[in-house]
Design a protein around this nucleic acid. Structure first.
Lengths: 141, 141
DNA sequence: AATAAACTTGACCATTTTAGTCGGGTATGT
DNA sequence: ACATACCCGACTAAAATGGTCAAGTTTATT
């Protein structure tokens, strides 16, 4: 099981954005420089964040992105969902009634992955951008 | 984030093993047939389970594998660790003091992944093979 | 002693995913 | 007009994944 960089970058970028968008929109270039994430890659990520109405864009000079909601309304679930970062149990639970492994029954560990998924999603549901912002005022080395 | 088949197969195979090893060792061939997992792939997985002392092997005809511990002593953590299925935060947390992203500080979401990892591992620590066995007596469609 | 069942080991490989890059746009403030 | 910034789709190198294949060794049974 692994977390991909895409999800990590999305969260990093949004925390960065939340910190600086109070006055003006924040350009991806700035985020790129501050967070050390490739600009081109950020564009892909923000395209998805925009489609999912997590951020708004302002084009042209002095343009950039701003949050589309309050930081406490943006849960990690939303962010991960937007960039296709999700908990996958691979080939299990795809077909609802067919069972796994091409057999007629659920595989013997099926319920386990369900539980795990719920467990992880609960964590994501309960974390908002705001939590991360607060958590980070106390930046320890 | 995704769970790989290797981890899933390892758990499935061990549940299968736990059910049948009361009398005789269980051959991978049997597990392969019952669970629909490639025999060659199972061999790779069991090689790792054996190195981690989760199973013992008996060679020769009528040989096979048996559990090396009681089902309630085998936690999911142990299984996943054995087959290299673990929560990875990718490039974060590799260097202990250097920080992430090649900078001198921790990335702003560093603590988050720590928390998540703890959250998930807690789930794995608290689940044993025995739990899965019990859970499965009530096999619902 | 021969045989067959089963574990053991290591190399190999096709496919998919990941983490980008690249090249062209279009909109807009100055 | 021009620079800054978003927009969009195609492309790609490298890694991970989910295996396969071949050539063993061990041991119970006949």
């Amino acid at each position: 099981m692994k977390l991909t960089s895409k999800g990590r970058y999305a969260v990093m970028a949004l925390v960065d954005l939340a910190r600086f968008d109070n006055i003006n929109p924040v350009s991806l270039r700035d985020i790129s420089l501050r967070q050390g994430i490739s600009l081109d890659y950020l564009e892909q990520i923000f395209s998805k964040l925009k489609k999912n109405e997590i951020v708004k864009s302002i084009r042209g000079t002095q343009g950039g992105y701003v949050l589309n909601k309050n930081p406490n309304e943006i849960k990690l679930t939303n962010i991960f969902h937007a960039v296709d970062e999700k908990v996958k149990t691979v080939q299990c639970k795809k077909e609802s009634k067919k069972g796994c492994n091409g057999k007629a029954t659920k595989c013997i560990t099926h319920n386990l992955w369900d539980e795990l998924e719920i467990h992880i999603n609960t964590f994501f549901e309960n974390k908002s951008l705001k939590d991360l912002l607060n958590n980070n005022k106390e930046t320890r080395v």
